[in-house]
C-alpha cells in the first residue's frame, strides 16, 4: 500500500478489533481485582463480626458472673478468699476477651485499604472508558484515513490510562483471616 492510499476496510476492522480486545482485557483484569478485593473484604468482615460478637457475649457473661459472685459474697455464701480468687480469674478472662475484641476491631484498617484500592481501580476504569469518548469529534462517515487516525488517537489514550492504572494495582493486604499476625524480631 502506498502512503497516500486510503486504508482498506480490513485495516480498519483490525484496528477496531484490537481496540475492543484491549478494552475487554483491561476491563476484565481490573474488575477481577475489584472482585478479588470484595471477596477478601467479605471474608475479613465476616470473621471480624463473629469475633466481636463472641467477645461481646463473653464479656457480658463475665460481668454477669462477677455480679452473681458479688451478690453471693454479700449474702455470705461465698468466702472472701473464694470471692477474691474468682474476681482475679474473671479479670484475666475479661482481659483476654477484650484482647480478642481489639484484634477483631482492626478489620477497619484492612478493609479501608482494600476499599481504597478498589476506588483506585474503579476511578482508573472510568478514565479508560472516558478515553473512548471522541470529545465531540465527528466520526468520518467513510472508512478512510481520518477514521483510522481517530481510532489510533483513541487507542493511544486508552493505552496511556491502562498503563497508569496498572501501576496502582499492587495489594498491600493479603490477610484472609482475622487471626493475629506473625511477629518476627530481627
Amino acid at each position: 500500500m502506498l502512503a497516500d492510499d486510503p486504508p482498506s476496510g480490513d485495516q480498519l476492522n483490525a484496528r477496531v478489533r484490537q481496540l475492543l480486545a484491549g478494552m475487554a482485557a483491561h476491563g476484565d483484569r481490573h474488575l477481577a481485582e475489584v472482585e478479588r478485593d470484595l471477596v477478601q473484604m467479605d471474608a475479613l468482615l465476616d470473621e471480624a463480626i463473629k469475633k466481636l460478637c463472641a467477645s461481646f457475649m463473653a464479656i457480658h457473661h463475665a460481668v454477669e458472673q462477677q455480679q452473681q459472685d458479688l451478690n453471693a459474697f454479700q449474702a455470705h455464701t461465698l468466702s472472701l478468699p473464694d470471692y477474691a480468687a474468682r474476681v482475679a480469674s474473671q479479670r484475666g478472662e475479661v482481659a483476654r476477651h477484650v484482647g480478642d475484641a481489639v484484634t477483631g476491631l482492626q478489620f477497619q484498617d484492612m478493609t479501608s485499604q482494600l476499599i481504597g484500592r478498589m476506588i483506585q481501580h474503579l476511578a482508573g476504569l472510568r478514565e479508560v472508558f472516558g478515553a473512548l469518548d471522541t470529545q465531540g469529534t465527528v466520526l468520518p462517515e467513510s472508512g478512510d484515513r481520518a477514521l483510522l487516525a481517530v481510532l489510533d488517537h483513541i487507542s493511544e489514550r486508552v493505552g496511556m490510562h491502562c498503563a497508569a492504572l496498572s501501576v496502582t494495582s499492587r495489594s498491600t493486604v493479603n490477610q484472609r483471616h482475622m487471626n493475629s499476625g506473625d511477629i518476627e524480631l530481627f
Partner: peptide, 21 residues
C-alpha cells in the same frame, strides 16, 4: 527496623514483644 509485626495484632503478644525490647 528491629522487628516486623503483621496486622491484626493481639494486644497480649504486642505487649510481650515491647516488654522484651
Amino acid at each position: 527496623a528491629n522487628g516486623w509485626l503483621v496486622k491484626p495484632f493481639d494486644p497480649a503478644r504486642l505487649t510481650e514483644v515491647v516488654r522484651k525490647l
